[in-house]
Simulated scan of single mutants.
Amino acid sequence: MSALESPQFGSTVELREVVRDFGGGVGLNGLDLAAQPGELIALLGPSGCGKTTALRALAGLERVDSGSILIDGVDVTDEPTNRRDLGMVFQSYSLFPHLTAVQNVEFGLRMRKTPPAERRRRASEALELVGLDHHADRYAHQLSGGQQQRVALARALVTRPRVLLLDEPLSALDAKVRVQLRDEIRRIQTELGITTFFVTHDQEEALAIADRVAVMRSGDIEQIGAPEELYRRPASPFVAEFVGLTNKVAGHVAGGELTVFGRPVPLVSRAVPDGAVQVYLRPEDVLLASAGIPATVVATSFLGALRRTRLRLDDGTELAVQHAARETPEPGSAVHVELAGTPVTAAPAAPE
């Protein structure tokens, strides 16, 4: 039998024109979002954009003022949390300190009056799934932060929910543990085939873990798509700036054609009005070259497999360039750069 003794086929989830009005504060502004069975969607955005409100509305922890929420085509908008069949993991581990790891995992089954023998078997299986079966009898204070979050994940999965909700579950962990647990969550989610929503403000985390990323702003979705699509073809300046590093440089559009530093550059969208524009240029799309646009090295940082170098052009424009670590330009040295010709996002420049 597969993990947790029951193969999962995922559920469809739909939020249709969901509104949550906090009386002047940003909540949800007619949010539309649909997840396919087994899909992992990351809700990404800055603080206050509505991503956690959307998750809480889906969980039944936040009432909605209008709109509807459907799971497998059934309207659950007015159903209480305990009747929505969801698993939830939050930023705080929320483990019961007086219970062992396996007892914490058993808790939801106990509330459902599952027989003790089955309860213990399923809890042990869930702990094995997250790699903590050998720590079953330890208390929370005997576990590291990453281990505690694994227990919380096992507790959410042991009831075999239709949908898994993760609200910034890794933000309290150190960088190395975050990456390890992030990869484990993705492995487990894929293995179980459970439809999952993952809230984060960390764009690298969202790009690494999700099938699709929904970038949120002011209670609505600015753009949703596959991670590479959002990174390579951002639909707006907000997405271009929030998802990944970007250089903001001056350009000019005439007849749908963009020029940057005197070079033609393709646009993600040609629906940009003629005139001065601000261009959003990725660091890896600026190339160190033997000839081209002259620049001076300001600073350079070694990042392991690559190096990020800041340059200043003759007109004072500063650019971040991402390149191979074996290239080691010295601060103050003269270099040249060229543009890779990757399509870019542009918007009309603000009047001076």
Rank of each mutant, 00 (worst) to 15 (best):
E125S: 13
A126Q: 02
A126N: 00
L127R: 07
L129P: 00
G131M: 05
H135T: 04
A136W: 11
A136S: 15
D137S: 11
D137A: 13
Y139H: 13
S144A: 04
S144D: 02
G146L: 09
Q148T: 01
R150I: 04
V151Y: 04
A152P: 12
A152T: 12
L153S: 03
L153A: 03
L153G: 07
R155S: 01
A156R: 10
L157D: 13
V158N: 14
R160Y: 12
P161H: 03
L164S: 02
L165Q: 13
D167P: 10
D167F: 05
E168R: 06
E168Y: 07
P169T: 02
S171Y: 04
A172M: 10
D174F: 02
A175D: 07
V177G: 04
V179C: 06
Q180E: 15
L181E: 00
R182G: 12
R182C: 04
D183K: 11
D183T: 12
E184P: 01
R186Y: 10
R187A: 13
R187T: 14
I188G: 04
I188M: 10
I188R: 09
Q189R: 08
Q189T: 13
Q189A: 06
Q189K: 11
E191R: 14
T195R: 11
F197T: 00
F197A: 00
F198D: 00
V199D: 02
T200I: 01
T200V: 02
T200F: 07
H201Q: 14
H201A: 10
Q203E: 14
Q203V: 10
E204G: 11
E205H: 11
A206T: 13
L207Y: 12
I209P: 07
I209V: 15
D211F: 08
D211R: 08
D211K: 09
V213A: 00
V213F: 03
V215L: 10
M216Q: 05
G219M: 09
Q223R: 03
Q223D: 09
Q223C: 07
Q223A: 04
G225R: 05
A226V: 04
A226G: 14
P227N: 08
E228G: 09
E228S: 14
Y231A: 05
Y231C: 03
R232S: 10
R232A: 15
R233T: 12
A235H: 07
A235T: 12
A235S: 15
S236L: 01
F238M: 01
V239T: 14
A240G: 09
E241C: 12
E241I: 02
E241N: 14
E241S: 15
E241D: 14
V243R: 00
L245E: 15
N247H: 09
V249S: 00
A250S: 12
G251R: 01
G251F: 01
H252K: 06
V253H: 09
A254F: 02
G255H: 06
G256M: 07
E257L: 13
L258F: 03
L258Q: 02
T259K: 11
F261L: 15
G262T: 07
